[in-house]
Design a binder for these strands. Structure first.
Lengths: 344, 344
DNA sequence: TTGAAAGCGATACCAA
DNA sequence: TTGGTATCGCTTTCAA
């Protein structure tokens, strides 16, 4: 006789007993795997409804040598809108395929990422989506040993652990640098945040600096320590930058939110945009859609990036062959917060 | 003899065998539960490092009749910054107590929430944190039967399923309404988004309307269908509202992001703030920190709300007695986007 | 301090 | 179309 277990949860065995069939038959009905009569199906389903049975998927995964439907998703922070958009794209897409997101906020540190990876792996996830291409030695070891599908997103990686989805951040910074140089700017500034790990923003800055220096200009950097890349750091980062460098002609920001903060600072100080100073952002974030002047920026579809990352994960899980390197692309939005031609 | 299992994962049995002890001894060492010699501990740990053993927590939970360290967290959407702040507060706090967030984006619908609840419950979570106090009948049934700690957040619920953390949204809207009435405004507008479920924004609007009507004024509403409460809906919602009602003196928005969108629209049309029209937001979001004029708004600490929600969950899990109803509070930020006194 | 055996809830496999 | 039995990795219980 099947006995109720210690917890108050209804088990498959109880459903089966109540329906007068074996566990196996009940299991087959619940999975719709066939091999049972319509009469049996009805008996079982009636008891499922009656007892309010909810399957214990832990047991399923455990029994089957399979992995779960969880996908671990690591994101640096939620205060930076680019990442919330990516996450939304990932979770919606994963959800539509019956997968669940287990979130990990790494705060841009290898240490947090490593701890999170260790924990999430212990739950036998189906796969992992990680923001960034840089991981600690021990993380890499765990990831390789896991044998799981790993999608690294954000900064395109030509030789990823498994699959990479993103854009080339260096190139996007380079393109912005070249564009500003082409407009005659030579004395440039950069405002961003500063983190422990080499990240995509750093790659953008490197690309930007390269293009500017190639064009005979220079970049003065202002990195705000340990802050989220949002409006206020853009505001006070600009204040700090301009207090030490009065002669800057144009400032490039880590993202549009920071650029907006900078724009507000400059406006508050009575500077005209772009006559007195140029402003360029990155990401083409929602705020750009309501500004009076079109913000000069780099357009990236963050939501799509997340969706593609999730699709590649699903592809890997279904055993399809998946491209190693998936470039989402970007393009420059000229805008009107920088001057439109070389001054005479 | 312990044999390697079919998967490539290293099991506790293999570690034990390699160390020349029993599974139980290895298990005790790994849990640090005592009852073993230092020599044994070293032998076991040496093999753990050597083999790269990662515990299978599924098996732990499964064996122990316990629940996992997962906490299911449902949030309507990530496009609305108030929710990303709440989520960040929750995840950081949960993480610091060794719990993991399983994310659910419900898109403000009962149906999505119900499906997500069903799935997440099948993973034997430790508890659930749900945004909103309104759930489908079947959701309520599942939640009650689960016997799990449930923290309902956002809209304070005097008789929650289990624990409620949030603020009284009706009151916050009411306070804003009364404030604007006190400044002499009578012809008011509201711009927000529209969703299937009765939600907190609706409660704010109700409170606002009540206060305004009590004060002899009226509210003209503009609800944008199925849009995220961000900048652009604020912009075009204002356009729509003003196209049908030219005589409005002041507009209250669902949140600060939408208010900023509205502010941009009005400015673009050459209207002066607050001389020609007043603007009031809600939430005191990061963007308010960089605006030239202080935005009239309702301050709520969303991050703290999330942290408190997570703390209450931890409290429930540790068996502490937890207050049923936890009011985070709010306060009105006067700002300068509405006029400062009654016109003569 | 250590170990052997039972059992958690589901599924795979084989037998009826 | 059904059902019995072994099994997954770990912990609990009881014995040595």
């Amino acid at each position: 006789m099947e006995k109720p277990n210690k917890s108050n949860k209804v088990s498959l065995a109880e459903v089966a007993q109540a329906a007068g069939v074996s566990k196996m038959t009940a299991s087959r009905v619940l999975r719709g795997s066939g091999g049972y009569s319509e009469k049996t199906r009805k008996k079982v389903m009636a008891q499922v409804d009656l007892l309010g049975y909810l399957p214990n998927r832990l047991a399923t995964v455990f029994s089957g040598e399979k992995n779960s439907t969880f996908v671990g998703v690591s994101i640096p922070e939620l205060g930076n809108e680019v990442f919330t958009q990516v996450l939304e794209g990932i979770d919606r897409k994963l959800g539509s395929f019956g997968h669940q997101t287990v979130l990990g906020l790494t705060q841009h540190t290898h240490e947090e990422e490593e701890n999170w990876i260790r924990t999430v792996l212990s739950w036998q996830p189906a796969g992992l989506i990680l923001t960034g291409r840089s991981h600690s030695i021990r993380s890499l070891e765990m990831l390789r040993n896991s044998g799981l599908p790993i999608v690294e997103i954000w900064d395109l990686n030509s030789s990823p652990l498994d699959v990479s989805v993103g854009i080339n951040h260096f190139d996007s910074g380079f393109e912005m640098g070249r564009y500003l140089i082409s407009l005659g700017y030579r004395s440039l500034g950069y405002v961003g945040t500063s983190h422990d790990t080499a990240n995509a923003a750093t790659a953008r800055l490197d690309g930007f600096t390269k293009a500017v220096e190639d064009g005979g200009g220079s970049v003065r950097r202002q990195l705000c320590l340990h802050d989220t890349a949002s409006f206020y750091p853009g505001f006070y980062g600009t204040e700090q930058l301009l207090s030490t460098s009065q002669d800057l002609e144009c400032v490039f920001y880590q993202n549009d939110s920071m650029a907006f903060g900078g724009l507000q600072f400059c406006t508050a100080r009575g500077m005209r945009i772009p006559e007195d100073i140029g402003i360029a952002g990155w990401g083409d974030l929602p705020i750009a859609s309501v500004l009076h002047k079109r913000l000069t920026s780099i357009h990236v579809s963050h939501l799509k990036l997340g969706q593609v990352a999730a699709e590649k994960m699903i592809g890997r899980l279904s055993g399809e062959s998946v491209a190693t390197c998936n470039d989402i692309g970007f393009h420059l939005m000229p805008g009107s917060t920088v001057r439109s031609n070389i001054p005479v």
